[in-house]
Design a protein around this nucleic acid. Structure first.
Length: 253
DNA sequence: AAAAACGACAACCGCCGAGAT
DNA sequence: AATCTCGGCGGTTGTCGTTTT
């Protein structure tokens, strides 16, 4: 790894920031703005690396950051976006105004991961079933299949995504405001923010085999642990919030 | 009351991609 | 084309306060 020139310095301070250091950084940025993280600590009178300054600013000092605990709505949004984007914390953070990626990551690891683990889609457990621990409740599968009978056709141009600030894109691929997904009995446009890659990632979590219609997945497949985990990761967060309302779940993905 | 375990979160580390030289 | 620099990202660790034993 190459070390940034600006950061090559012995005696740089590490560890928790003091109030005085915070004040210096805030004062400097307020006056001169952010022009070069590697060099500005020296001018600001800080014995810190540029990286350390940037991190402190982005995660703690930036004025538009929200303080305090996450609301229920934010929590739900994190779960929702994580089901789509995975561990792409910065992408998730960009959808939650005032929250940093580090904050969301920490919150996920300390709160939501645990919540998810405790509230997964229940698995079937019967005495006769030797494979009991690896089976979903059948009625749940059928309900979900009924509502989320998706035709997976990635990367079809029809499914291309245009971000909110990308309406002027000169991309020759026809784009829509969202994803178009074919449900049993009709089409539905999904307005979740994200990129085509986001969606591909989501579908692959949901359904590891490319171009496979969920409705055609044999029930035996649900006894596969890997598939279950992917499925749980994708649908689980929504299931936790909406319970058996699969219509609502399908409307959220 | 003290020690151990746990939880929360700030901060660090190594890697990567983009842009500049 | 190759190299360098910087900003950014995600995983991980360190520290401190709280709870449990």
């Amino acid at each position: 790894m190459r070390t940034p020139k600006g950061d090559i310095k012995v005696g740089l301070k590490k560890g928790a920031w003091t109030l005085e250091e915070d004040e210096k950084l805030i004062a400097y940025i307020n006056r001169y703005g952010i022009w070069n993280w590697s060099h500005m600590p020296r001018f600001a009178g800080l014995q810190r690396s540029g990286k350390s300054c940037r991190l402190r600013w982005m995660n703690y000092l930036k004025p538009d950051l929200k303080k305090g605990s996450f609301s229920k709505e934010e929590e739900r949004d994190i779960l929702h976006y994580h089901s789509i984007l995975g561990n792409r914390w910065s992408a998730i953070a960009s959808r939650l105004p005032g929250r940093s990626d580090n904050e969301i990551k920490n919150y996920w690891h300390t709160h939501l991961k645990k919540t998810l683990r405790n509230n997964r889609v229940p698995k079937k457990s019967t005495q006769n079933d030797t494979n009991a621990s690896s089976c979903f409740e059948v009625h749940n599968i059928e309900k979900i299949q009924e509502h989320v009978n998706l035709v997976i056709d990635i990367p079809s141009p029809l499914f291309s995504w245009t971000s909110e600030d990308d309406s002027s894109s000169s991309n020759s691929i026809p784009s829509t405001k969202g994803y178009e997904v074919e449900f049993e009995g009709g089409h539905q446009e999904i307005s979740s923010p994200g990129t085509v890659e986001d969606l591909q990632c989501f579908w692959r979590q949901l359904c590891p085999l490319e171009n496979l219609e969920l409705g055609n997945i044999p029930h035996e497949m649900f006894s596969n642990d890997v598939f279950q985990d992917s499925y749980n990761d994708a649908i689980g967060p929504l299931y936790n919030f909406y319970g058996d309302d699969y219509g609502l779940i399908s409307s959220r993905i």
